[in-house]
Design a protein around this nucleic acid. Structure first.
Length: 672
DNA sequence: GCAAGGTC
């Protein structure tokens, strides 16, 4: 709103002699759809609250009133808008120009919630520069009839489509239970299922990987540069599965001199500015959790230390570029980058766009005094975030990375070739090294030597890589699922807290019991396919252009559900056959049993002069009255219990004060 | 119990 105050000349006033205005703001969604069972008539409540019977699916979208409720904590904002609009003749919904129509949706949600009956107008600004805001004001259109406004309808269609996808979680739960599995919950949706499916596929590939070593003659110079022949499995026969065969081959080769064929100087421009997903990758690599990163970035944005987090832009406008230009030396100084490297201070086409609402993630207009000051306010994680964002931005102002590409072959055996890249001038790479963002490792390069020696090289079919954060975010980016921010957000949601489906273990995501069950059930379904988002977006685009009735999009969820139900049903027969799930299932069962024990009956009594209570059951064994008395007396007792592996065992132990997750309690302490 | 979208 501050940008509007600046552009229009005050919080209220007159716009170019045309009309009086008063400014007020909103943020995010002020309203959200009610729960399914709250949006249907009384007689249908059973159907739409059920998690039990398949007969209730697919849902009929015509049964829904699509009523909304205020998001907890947002009623104050709604009241402020209602009060500000009281004496006005019209409301102008003003947001950036987002192709998904989300701004129209959240604007209309408010307008409808305050029962506004007068005119509604719409403006979309390209960026927050005063002249862009004025230009947007001049393009104002009357949109009073909301059901005629394509952008509103496409977003409404998306919202209803996504809500209806909820039913697939219930369907999956029913099939899981039928097959004898008891996940706490299922979380199936086009975003979460795409991620879960990707993790599942990668980990399955890793489990099924069988290393197949191969052996062939290669050459190596003293710098370790490898010379090898191009291998075509259909034609060539120099690659063997047995070392001895390659050794026999080796006898035919002697050392050879190296002939350099080509030396070419090449350049590489700095990489595009980082998005929030990439910030998540780089800061996450230092050991910080996605949720912390998102939260801290948001806090830093509000303090104007960094720009808007949830941007879809990968470039900046000329205005945004010029706004930061006078600050770059100061920024460089704070993060310890040599200002002398920042020699490209004129905008370069690669990084500049004529249209960007918020502009790519970059440092904000408030430059912190020092990293120490930044750490005081936002912690070490804030320092890491700022460094990544600032370095990515400053790299853009540095010269291209220059390297020499060399190609060579062996004088005696011209089929053996090698190519290397020799760095000549690091330039932007001295500020920001983008290697950390790519999947492949770049080998360090050394000059070719004069001679190369033959040897038996051992290779193998490549092992699939773990599903890392980098891998998942890059995949989602490639399929255009979510923005940098929502991708990171969803990944964070999937891997932590209540309802989590996976955990990040040693750099790779591993599905938990719930995640594994839902991945198996939804394998090959439409909802889990990354294509579903593409299809949804295409449909939304047609709604916006008035080529498609918006109601057909929510309706299409019926087709998806009809298509996916038999797939879930068939997949349920694979649950018992999945070895990983079987392992997780036995752990899950033990956990559930242990939980019940913890929540079980307590006994109380005097222990060392203190009135205490402790669990009467341990490891499935319920202490007898005598055992309880002995324990309270501090005596050692022997009991038979059920181990975590499910076998019966004997253990002795005493009553003792213990701690669990930082909380002390009294209970039976076994002596293993 | 279930989605995905948004965040002065």
């Amino acid at each position: 709103m501050d940008d509007f105050v600046t552009a229009l000349g005050g919080k209220s006033g007159n716009f170019q002699g045309k009309f009086d205005y008063v400014l007020t703001h909103s943020y995010g969604h002020i309203l959200q759809l009610k729960e399914p069972q709250e949006m249907v008539s009384e007689d249908k409540k059973t159907r739409y609250s059920s998690w039990r019977s398949l007969k209730y699916f697919p849902w009929d979208e015509n049964d829904f009133s699509w009523a909304k409720r205020i998001v907890p904590g947002r009623s104050k904002t709604l009241k402020e808008i209602r009060d500000a609009a009281k004496d006005c003749d019209g409301i102008i919904i003003a947001t950036d120009d987002d192709p998904s129509g989300e701004g129209d949706l959240l604007g209309w949600e408010i307008v409808n919630a305050i029962h506004w009956k007068k005119a509604v107008y719409r403006i979309r600004f390209e960026d927050q520069a005063p002249k862009s805001i004025i230009a947007a004001m001049k393009r104002m259109v009357n949109v009073t009839n909301q059901m005629e406004q394509g952008e509103y309808l496409e977003a409404l269609a998306r919202q209803r489509f996504d809500l209806l996808s909820m039913q697939l979680s219930r369907i999956a739960m029913i099939y899981a239970k039928k097959a004898g599995y008891k996940p706490k919950t299922m979380r199936i949706g086009r975003l979460k299922s795409a991620i879960v499916g990707l993790i599942f596929d990668r980990n399955t590939e890793i489990e099924n990987y069988v290393k197949k070593p191969y052996f062939e003659v290669k050459f190596k110079d003293q710098n370790g540069n490898l010379f090898s022949r191009k291998f075509d499995p259909d034609k060539d026969q120099f690659r063997y599965s047995v070392r001895q065969q390659a050794k026999t081959d080796l006898a035919d080769y002697v050392a050879s001199s190296i002939v350099i064929d080509e030396k070419k100087l090449k350049q590489q421009t700095p990489p595009p500015l980082v998005d929030l997903g990439q910030i998540g990758i780089l800061v996450g690599a230092k050991g910080y959790k996605d949720k912390e990163i998102i939260k801290t970035y948001q806090d830093m944005y509000q303090a104007q230390i960094v720009s808007y987090p949830r941007t879809e832009d990968t470039q900046v406008t000329l205005e945004q570029f010029n706004e930061l230009l006078p600050l770059v030396d100061q920024i460089a100084n704070v993060i310890g980058v040599d200002s002398k490297l920042l020699t490209r201070r004129k905008p370069r086409a690669k990084f500049i766009t004529s249209q960007a609402a918020h502009g790519a993630n970059r440092p904000g207009v408030k430059v912190p005094k020092s990293l120490e000051q930044l750490e005081k306010r936002f912690g070490k994680i804030g320092v890491e975030i700022y460094q990544v964002v600032a370095k990515s931005y400053l790299a853009m102002l540095a010269e291209d990375y220059v390297y020499e590409a060399q190609k060579a072959h062996l004088a005696k055996y011209p089929d053996f070739r090698a190519s290397i890249q020799l760095p000549k001038a690091m330039n932007y790479k001295l500020i920001f090294d983008d290697r950390d963002l790519s999947e492949e490792d770049e080998a360090t390069a050394h000059e070719f030597k004069d001679m190369a020696q033959p040897f038996v090289y051992e290779g193998a079919n490549p092992k699939p890589g773990k599903p890392t954060k980098k891998f998942i975010l890059n995949y989602l980016k490639k399929h255009n699922i979510g923005t940098g921010a929502t991708r990171l957000q969803t990944l964070a949601e999937i891997s932590s807290g209540k309802g989590s489906l996976a955990a990040l273990i040693r750099g790779g995501y591993v599905l938990n019991y719930e995640g594994q069950v839902q991945a198996i059930l939804s394998k090959g379904s439409m909802i889990a396919s990354p294509k579903i988002t593409k299809r949804l977006f295409d449909g939304m685009d047609r709604v916006k252009r008035k080529e498609l009735d918006y109601q057909l999009i929510p309706q299409s969820m019926q087709t998806i559900v009809r298509h996916d139900m038999p797939i879930f049903e068939n997949n349920a027969t694979s649950l018992d056959k999945n070895a990983t799930l079987q392992k997780l299932a036995s752990k899950h069962q033990t956990k559930t049993i242990n939980k019940k024990v913890v929540a079980g009956e307590k006994v109380t009594g005097d222990f060392n002069g203190e009135q205490i209570s402790f669990n009467q059951t341990w490891g499935g064994h319920k202490f007898t009255k005598k055992e309880v008395a002995d324990l309270l007396a501090g005596k050692k007792i022997r009991i038979s219990y059920c181990s975590k592996k499910g076998t019966d065992k004997i253990v002795s132990g005493k009553l003792a004060k213990q701690t669990y997750k930082g909380r002390s309690f009294y209970g039976f302490k076994p002596e293993f």
